[in-house]
Design a protein around this nucleic acid. Structure first.
Lengths: 216, 216, 216, 216
DNA sequence: GATGAATGAGCGTTCATTCAT
DNA sequence: AATGAATGAACGCTCATTCAT
């Protein structure tokens, strides 16, 4: 029917504009501290009016969150795709993750921000946690596949932390080009991966045989 | 001379007031996202006027930086003290670092912020880098002492990143008490330390035999 | 003719939709300060689009006015119906009026708003005045029927004012239930009615023998 | 001491500026619907910056309230002054009240607004109620002085309502000059006063012998 | 040196109205 | 006739910084 087509078109158009805004926001967030990006800037960059932004997002936080979640989806897809062809080694996994963060600074900036300071409304917190858990699950799979049985979850935490830490610590190292930074962070990730791969069969000591996990 | 004494007193007084401001700011930063602390709040907490703050600091960023550097001094002293009595093991080192960050969230929040986001004026960048290098040097010392010869600097980077990452990733884990978080982050630090200690003699492979270090 | 029927149907439909909007608006106005009701809310409540509302009303003020006039019609009918069966006493009249206002807060709120504040376009002012005059005429009839000859019109003004004032002064008395408020306002209305009934044969004094009425 | 003088001057200056803002706001409120007056307008009219307004008032509502309370003080003083020289008759009282409202439209507009719609924060509600009670007390005194023993409080309510109603109903009667309106409202007030004076000894009937007062 | 009132650009957000479909 | 996305001026309010005292 003609009607159906029109409705479809409408929806497509709506989606297109939403993507337009999302894209513009993402670019801006990448350029500078995402928290200092204003609605006006986004509107201008997206070529729409302020009001239109609010037509697609309830408020700025919502838009921030959408950018973040879009990124999370992307990274999930990247990891999944690789998984299908052939289970990646731990090293490969770390490489993929760090490479993605290098190419999508906004993602790790947001992750970092939310982790460092961010008060988030409860539902947003849930979504954030979901993303984190997804990433952790992927790491744990690799760790288990690698045959590192002890403390798989705990090791996953440690490795995940280490990878994030690499980005935090070096992604904006002053005076380096993006390319230099990418190379350095990838190298560090490789070291971390190998270190974990070769050294993670840690004998149970008093200190790491604690009965109850705080975080899982 | 009397004049000299008066000048000294003046300087002492000035220093005392500066410390007053610093202390008040630190307390406030610990309570909430330091970026949301206003000059007004600091002035009130310190019991001085707004103008006085600008008498001691050129602007808010300057004050932020001073708080950060004060913390860095503290941690340096802690590490040095331990070093004197008996060179700490890598594990002990990680424990000290993570414990300090747990007790001084502001420090790692600021570090995180400046790393994630921060445009800093050049001299501030220098100061930040100096702190980072100091910490890195300490780690490298321990790594060398542990007899892990390969890639000592690179491993130090990786370990440093990992420790920071642990804090970033878990310091605000929702629903946990500060005590639970401290225990968990300490345990992860222990895992990382042991992993690095036992596994860091990585054979040189093509990928990690890169000729030139980007960051040091 | 078929054409005629279709036109009729069209008109009926149009009228139905207009009533739909009117009704929805009225309900919303009753729930909260009518000035804070948005077009969006009305559209949603009426189950039509925003555009449709502008199809039936030139602007929000127009819709406000229509709601007001609808209410005025209602109250006129109520008073007329009572009039037909048996001319109501002044007391009964006041009771009917106050009871209606209690049950239709929006009406008195709008009346109050337009009186207090409202710039209204000239034609709207005319309509408002027409309503006021209608109410005043009814009061004057009762006053005349009661045999209070002096200053009938002026007394009607005074009584009308007094009734409105009762609502203004007590309709939102904090901490009272609607029922308590209704009882209190009705009691005050009764007092006013009796006061006017028993005391309105005022001797002509210098001050009230003014030659020309400002408002009639 | 010099210091004391300076502090005094500072306080005086501060007070002067506060009055400046208050005055400017009042003038604006008188000109148009006070709720449509913006911070920018007030700032401009007062010749200060936006920020300064917020230096003296926490928010717009606060400023609105201050204007209202200032007016209430004024009217209280007017009534008190008259009271001292010679207890005014009920007529004189009504005249004073209505004359004041005519000269200070903002006061009755605000009173009307708060009564009609206004959500007010609890402390503001308290202040408003205090003003209302003060006015009511004055009326009751006059009613008692006039020797109208029955239902003194209730009659005060009714009279107060009537006076407010007069203003609501006629203060913006379209097409009249302020002077005409003043004359008309004063005349109506006189009628009401006389009506109440001569007719308020109402015999207790079933309907007005209700056991429990809702509002007092 | 200490003060704190004044400043005003800039923020996120709202909402009546328009108009292309 | 019906739709509802787009618009953007305007809102109340914040806060780092200045500067006259």
């Amino acid at each position: 029917m003609a009607l159906k087509k029109m409705v479809e078109l409408k929806l497509k158009e709506r989606d297109a504009r939403r993507r337009l805004i999302l894209h513009a926001a993402r670019e801006l967030f990448a350029k500078k501290d995402f928290r200092s990006v204003t609605v006006r800037e986004i509107a201008k960059a997206a070529g729409v009016s302020i009001g239109t932004i609010y037509n697609y997002y309830e408020n700025l936080t919502d838009l921030f969150l959408d950018v973040f979640l879009k990124s999370a989806e992307e990274i999930e897809q990247i990891l999944n795709k690789e998984n299908l062809s052939a289970a990646p080694s731990l090293s490969r996994f770390c490489e993929l993750y760090i490479a993605y963060l290098n190419d999508n600074m906004t993602f790790y900036q947001m992750m970092g921000h939310f982790m460092l300071v961010g008060y988030l409304p409860p539902d947003a917190t849930d979504k954030l946690n979901h993303v984190m858990r997804m990433l952790m699950d992927r790491i744990e799979e690799r760790i288990n596949a690698q045959g590192m049985h002890n403390h798989a979850r705990l090791s996953a935490h440690a490795l995940f932390s280490a990878l994030n830490g690499i980005m935090i610590s070096y992604a904006r190292y002053p005076g380096r080009t993006p390319d230099q930074i990418k190379r350095h962070t990838l190298r560090l990730a490789e070291i971390v991966a190998q270190t974990f791969a070769s050294g993670s069969k840690i004998k149970k000591t008093k200190s790491n045989r604690l009965k109850k996990e705080v975080v899982s």
